[in-house]
């Protein structure tokens, strides 16, 4: 618990009726750090992420953002603070072209005139996608013509190119091909190296533990709604992680 924590949760609880989704979760992410959150289905990963994005309000405990106690009222409120989320549903507008999706709700206009700067947005979108190596035919194509992986890559790119202080990825590699999956992980590494963009917290999926371990600085394991394991990636191994997840099913 230091001042460099971007986001911190202390004793956070959430119940849905009789079901306790998470209980007494303590979690923190430092500036420039990538935290991988793993856990079995139903362990409470999604609930925890949704609390950190402002989608759910916790029943108890306290969130801190940049050291200050904070109550996240909504996703929009969290975003205004610099907590960007890539939701599993991606929030893509199928009928709009790629470059408008990248600029959604952050469109460039000819100030003081309210007209869109489409040419400039096309150029910036092209630059942004080129710089992270996402290959698509044309930034003017509607998103509906892209593959699932390409859509996901664009959703991640959109969050990255906003002024995010914390980036939350919910199942970032779901529905991704090997190529796009590698692309996203490379993108996260780039962001970390750049350093100007602090604190990333990614909710990595269960699958491909090896790839995840290479990218994350630290791994937290969530079991039955509470964090049971917190170690730097370099101090652990795939075997140990799998062992922990599977331990409770062994006779």
């Amino acid at each position: 618990m230091t001042d460099t924590d971007m986001i911190r949760a202390e004793h956070v609880r959430k119940r849905f009726g009789p079901v306790t989704a998470i209980q007494d979760v303590n979690l923190h992410v430092r500036k420039g750090e990538i935290l991988g959150l793993i856990g079995d289905n139903g362990a409470g990963k999604s609930t925890l992420i949704k609390i950190l994005t402002g989608y759910h309000q916790p029943d108890g405990g306290q969130l801190f953002f940049e050291g200050e106690p904070i109550h996240l009222r909504s996703v929009v409120h969290a975003r205004s603070l610099g907590i960007e989320t890539v939701f599993q549903d991606l929030a893509m507008i199928d009928d709009l072209p790629v470059y408008l999706n990248l600029h959604l709700n952050k469109e460039l206009v000819h100030r003081p005139l309210p007209f869109l700067r489409r040419k400039e947005m096309r150029r910036k979108a092209r630059e942004a996608l080129d710089s992270i190596g996402i290959t698509i035919g044309s930034v003017t194509d509607p998103v509906s013509q892209l593959s699932g992986g390409q859509r996901q890559a664009i959703a991640v790119a959109r969050s990255v190119f906003s002024d995010a202080k914390v980036l939350l990825l919910d199942e970032p590699l779901a529905a991704m091909g090997a190529k796009e999956g590698g692309l996203i992980l490379r993108l996260l590494m780039q962001l970390k190296e750049r350093g100007d963009r602090p604190g990333h917290h990614s909710d990595c999926p269960q699958l491909q533990p090896d790839r995840r371990r290479r990218v994350c600085d630290r791994v937290n394991l969530l079991q039955h709604g509470t964090i049971t394991f917190d170690k730097a990636s370099k101090d652990t191994s795939v075997a140990e992680l799998l062992d922990l997840v599977h331990a409770e099913y062994r006779l």
Binding site: L90, A91, M92, L96, L104, E107
Partner: peptide, 16 residues
């Protein structure tokens, strides 16, 4: 753009 986004994906538009 907001009008198109609202009609195309209301949830996604609101999330944005």
């Amino acid at each position: 753009i907001y009008t198109q986004a609202t009609g195309s994906n209301p949830v996604g538009a609101a999330e944005s």
